[in-house]
Write a protein that binds this DNA or RNA. Structure first.
Lengths: 188, 188
DNA sequence: GTCTATAAGTGGATAGAC
DNA sequence: GTCTATCCACTTATAGAC
């Protein structure tokens, strides 16, 4: 770790996300973020106008990635399986911590208007893997497919003695939930 | 202990839970609770020693109900279906708001030591419907069965355009996930 | 049981020097 | 870009009157 100055903005984002996940958004003060970074509060305000702006910048990346996936899928109506695969990849590889933060701090997301935004995108994603006119049980299974993929980031179901499911297992179960098997269907 | 000290204590609990669900735990001040109740902050402190005590009293009821279910099930190793039914009844009938509060305010639960407590009970419940030595996919399906039942209380998956599943559908899907079908499965 | 008044502290945010 | 110093709204919690 040499003196890498110039990337302070990204360092703030990284440390803030760390603390938000550890302690929650409300309990994390700008003083703590500044301390862990080795700067003062005032320095933070040079890079971000408000505390809320830090969160916005964090979620914007996730939001953009979801938009990209939605756009990609919009042109390929039959790519249900691949949509799930790519969603799983997003959650596992780059946005795991952000997803965890979002899920664990819903009241803050709501107040910042981010719950609605992300909720809409999730709803669109849901519609891609399950038609509106499917029966309720099929719709619920499709929703659970998405839950299976983000369960590792869910606080209630990946804590204590219960470990998060391995990636490949999550994907396998998600596929069987969202892609109803046909009698000669392709297996994974 | 027994005996009636007026219903103010219960009114505080009710209003506090209301506001905690609306705004989140951290954003809800004792002043707001007092105002909505038509009393002053100081009156609150007559009934509860701290803000945290209010939460403890709220979660204690849920905790006791889960203990009761666990005890009941402990004596009936084969009652997997009935366990799920009773869990669903708890979530739907009496503890829906508390469950929502708990799920939406994980950082607060963690800080109050309640996340661990509830997590342990959930883990025990999980073990009741799925043996430890089952394969990972079966375990994940069992976990999703529980998720299906509390999805109505989950902020990420019951918002905006996506309505919570009807409870009978949730139970149906939960049963098919946690209780592997034998030949000729029964519908509804 | 409920009130008024206040203590004691923390938070986010700003101004202006360097 | 980062600092020191400060402001002020608001919080939990307590003391003591009625």
């Amino acid at each position: 770790m040499a003196g890498r100055r110039g990337d302070t903005r990204e360092r703030i984002q990284r440390v803030a996300l760390e603390l938000f996940v550890e302690q929650g958004y409300e309990k994390t003060s700008l003083r703590e973020i500044a301390e862990r970074l080795g700067v003062t509060k005032a320095a933070l305000y040079y890079h971000f106008r408000t505390k809320e702006d830090i969160v916005h910048s964090l979620v914007a990346d996730l939001s953009a990635a979801l938009d990209e996936l939605l756009e990609w899928a919009g042109e390929r109506p039959r790519a249900r399986e691949e949509v799930l695969r790519r969603f799983a990849a997003l959650v596992d590889q780059r946005f795991g911590p952000v997803m965890e933060f979002v899920q664990q701090n819903m009241p803050a997301m709501r107040e910042l208007g981010l719950k609605h935004t992300l909720g809409e995108k999730l709803a669109e994603l849901f519609q891609l893997i399950c038609a509106d006119d499917e029966d309720p049980a099929t719709q619920l299974r499709a929703r659970l497919a998405l839950v299976a993929l983000i369960l590792g980031a869910n606080p209630m179901f990946s804590s204590g003695r219960v470990a998060p499911p391995p990636r490949d297992v999550a994907l396998e179960v998600a596929l069987e939930l969202a892609v109803p098997r046909r009698s000669g269907g392709s297996a994974t």
